[in-house]
Design a protein around this nucleic acid. Structure first.
Lengths: 191, 191
DNA sequence: CGTCTATTTGAATGTACTCAAAAGCGGTGG
DNA sequence: CCACCGCTTTTGAGTACATTCAAATAGACG
């Protein structure tokens, strides 16, 4: 079926050919256009997305209309509203394509089957969530301990490929500041 | 061996008596006094702690001496510097006891054995990390989208048992603001 | 080419920090 | 059991960081 997702699996687990084809039967491919919405805030999320090609953004819009970006996902990343997905509750997030993208979808029911039939996926997602947890914990530390300028420079340094694809307004929404303020930081930071 | 940790395991997995006693052999008990340090920033963390009784704090101190709290752990919580623990790298965090506490330690090598001998622990920690990830992702959203006052009220509402045990200075270090500013928020918020 | 959105700029305002000093509180030793 | 000590909390003045609003400029896209 697909290359990249099986390479992704193989980072942490080994699958036989027959297992691979079984896994394939639980996955489905989806092509989306730029700006297409995959999950809308308020819905229940029942898909776990893997980005084969392209990029996605997961963001929240609050009562005042302010947009806050939770994460961006490039090729080879997994993304979903984990809270909504695992607890099957109403989502706080909207997930949309930043560009034309090719995704692999794993839906909630199929993931439960996968855990049951191929327990090695417990291990795979254990490691995936472990890394996600580490990333988010690090982000929490940065958010509470660094200045906005430091966090901006850090973001650019850490995710250069992301910076290529997104606007400054979107970086601002990831950092939790206004686009105007980010603009003034950039100016100051360049001098 | 211990009650609470096996109740904690049983939230997500089922263990036979013989499995329980095997698991016990990989765990060790540790009693610590108030202010005792379990992990010091700069060391490599090789223990995963479960709090049977008492409470812990994990925090970072930056170059300027500013303290930032990553998490507090009460009874029935797991805590470690996950980054340092799983990647066996130098820790950015110090973990210390907020009061006399009783802990269960699972060390890095034993956890690898546990994954191998009882793969059901892959599932257990998959769910644990999944929940930890959800919590941290939610925290990231709060950090970038809410005012400090909202985050303070939220913290108090969400972790009332924690608030009992910690100082306002520590809450401030979790929220990423100065104690002086938190004091002024409380005053304003009370009126 | 025209339209829409992103980015920049600046002034005014509000949020949060720094520093310093006073008040409150808890623990310890006498 | 009280007095003292150290740390936390409060208060306030001055400064720095960040937002809001408005307007001008620049880019992206059909």
């Amino acid at each position: 079926m697909d290359h990249l997702i099986f390479e992704n699996f193989s980072k942490h687990i080994t699958l036989s050919d027959s297992e691979k084809s079984y896994v394939s039967s639980l996955l489905s491919e989806k092509n989306v256009l730029k700006k297409e919405v995959l999950l809308r805030q308020g819905q229940t999320c029942n898909k776990f997305f893997f980005v084969e090609k392209g990029s996605l953004q997961a963001f929240n819009i609050n009562e005042d209309g302010k947009e806050s970006t939770i994460m961006f996902a490039l090729s080879d990343w997994w993304i979903t509203d984990m809270d909504s997905f695992v607890n099957q509750t109403t989502s706080n997030l909207t997930i949309a394509a930043l560009e034309d993208s090719k995704l692999i979808e794993l839906d909630f029911a199929n993931l439960q089957i996968l855990y049951k039939e191929l327990p090695v996926f417990e291990r795979f997602f254990r490691i995936l969530f472990q890394n996600a947890y580490i990333r988010e914990q690090r982000r929490a530390l940065y958010n509470i301990s660094m200045t906005t300028e430091e966090r901006y420079l850090q973001f650019v340094k850490k995710y250069p490929a992301m910076v290529e694809k997104i606007t400054q307004k979107q970086i601002a929404s990831y950092l939790g500041v206004t686009p105007e303020f980010l603009s003034s930081i950039k100016k100051k930071s360049a001098s």
